[in-house]
Design a protein around this nucleic acid. Sequence first.
DNA 1: CCTACCGATCGGTAGG
DNA 2: CCTACCGATCGGTAGG
Lengths: 210, 210
Amino acid sequence: MAATHLRNTPASGAPDNNRRADLVRAVAQLFREKGFAGTTIRDVASAVGMRSGSPFYHFTNKHELLMAVMEEGLQLGLERTRAVAVVDAKGLAPTERFRRLVRTHYGSILHDAGSDFIPVMLYDWRSLPVRYKRRTIELKDRYDAIWQATLDELHREGRLAADARLARLMILGAINFSATWYRSKPRTARRVDLDALADETVALVLQRDA
Amino acid sequence: MAATHLRNTPASGAPDNNRRADLVRAVAQLFREKGFAGTTIRDVASAVGMRSGSPFYHFTNKHELLMAVMEEGLQLGLERTRAVAVVDAKGLAPTERFRRLVRTHYGSILHDAGSDFIPVMLYDWRSLPVRYKRRTIELKDRYDAIWQATLDELHREGRLAADARLARLMILGAINFSATWYRSKPRTARRVDLDALADETVALVLQRDA
DNA sequence: CCTACCGATCGGTAGG
DNA sequence: CCTACCGATCGGTAGG
């Protein structure tokens, strides 16, 4: 019994990272489904097989749990987006790079299994205390910058007919809003997969090649 | 004292409509700011100068308050949108009718003073119990139908390069998402007013005239 | 990480 | 619509 407890308590005194990661993942799913205020610490604990007081061994309060979810999402999203835009599609035409950005956002940011972190940010940004917002905004700005670079190029080429900064807000808005209506296992026959959805999004917002 | 109470209690036995309307309005603002689960009945009561138990004289539980907010928003939105699309802009070109739809959604649905009802629906749809959703969806479908008619026309004219149904979801998504970033009293100098925002939105999603 | 618990708060109600 | 209240639940903590 005691040995089991010790196994999860690293020598350094810092909580075990696996358990912490388990918590953040479980919490992301719960917050996405029921919201920050609608989720109790007891929900969180039981989702990872802990007792009600134990999450506070890893996080000092509920708000830090919320921030951890958002930061995890931005960190992961930044890595994946950078891999697509700055590495894989570096030499490609802006339109193709744009298509890949859109597809990545639909997939690994919003709708792939386990992608609950950013949706929590979209839904519950207002629940994050101001003092936690600064750090999160820094990460978010870096994410936006990657998009902005490609959108600026498209604007220069005449493929984007709106102000490039507003275009970013509107395009990411259109994609993010799919969090409210897209279901990977739909009830209706009108199934749209993420590839098709990305293509349609690109078609909608880019002007035809002149 | 007793007279004051009686004045607000109509003979029919039904609660006074003005007080009910006051409640719905105040609740919409609170739910928009703090979310459904993050708002207490005591917040609601004190916002309209009541004591904590009194809102239950008008609504049997907290969820009915949420539904009332959403229905009020859809009812108002439907009226205004119909006035614009089906009356005022009936004979106009689809592109102009579209522009007015977009402008109305930005204004009287999302960002004008007192337009907190629909944002509550966007944020807290998941908090509405399933048995309340049916009625709300009926109203929402009618709202969507007005948009869809104009988008179908634009698609036929070649001004819309995506599937018209997905276009509706994406365009309303782009507009609705402004609820998370648009501020009528911005901190930065980059002020964009709703007229300009509507124009930019139209420019983004419509293909240039061939 | 568990046990055992606390003080505060919450949605809701009875009775007037 | 108020007064007075209840039972349940909540975030969080002490001590091991």
